[in-house]
Amino acid sequence: MRMAVFSVVTIAILLILWLDWPQIRAKSKRDKVAFITLLLIGWLLSLLDLPNTPGPVLVLKTIFKPFRGWVE
């Protein structure tokens, strides 16, 4: 699963770069940075073993723990 996710994401990123870089090149620094950052974050996250990595679900569960009684 990990390899599959990572390879799919990597291929997707490469395709995206190939498709969009010409447009991005012509734009401002800010656009470039935003674009690259997004891709980078996505790529790095896909390196983890996602389904089993604690993440937003756990964070949110902890934040909303006190409310749980309302919907029990």
Binding site: V5, V8, V9, A12, I13, I16, L19, D20, Q23, I24, K27, S28, R30, D31, A34, F35, L38, L39, I41, G42, W43, L45, S46, L48, L50, P51, N52, T53, P54, G55, P56, V57, L58
Partner: peptide, 24 residues
């Protein structure tokens, strides 16, 4: 940003990441 279009695909990748993250 000057245009939202270039961010769509990268955000799509993040969506894929979030759909898997921490949900075994």
């Amino acid at each position: 940003l000057s245009d939202y279009r270039p961010s769509v695909f990268p955000l799509g990748i993040l969506v894929i990441v979030f759909s898997l993250w921490d949900i075994p």
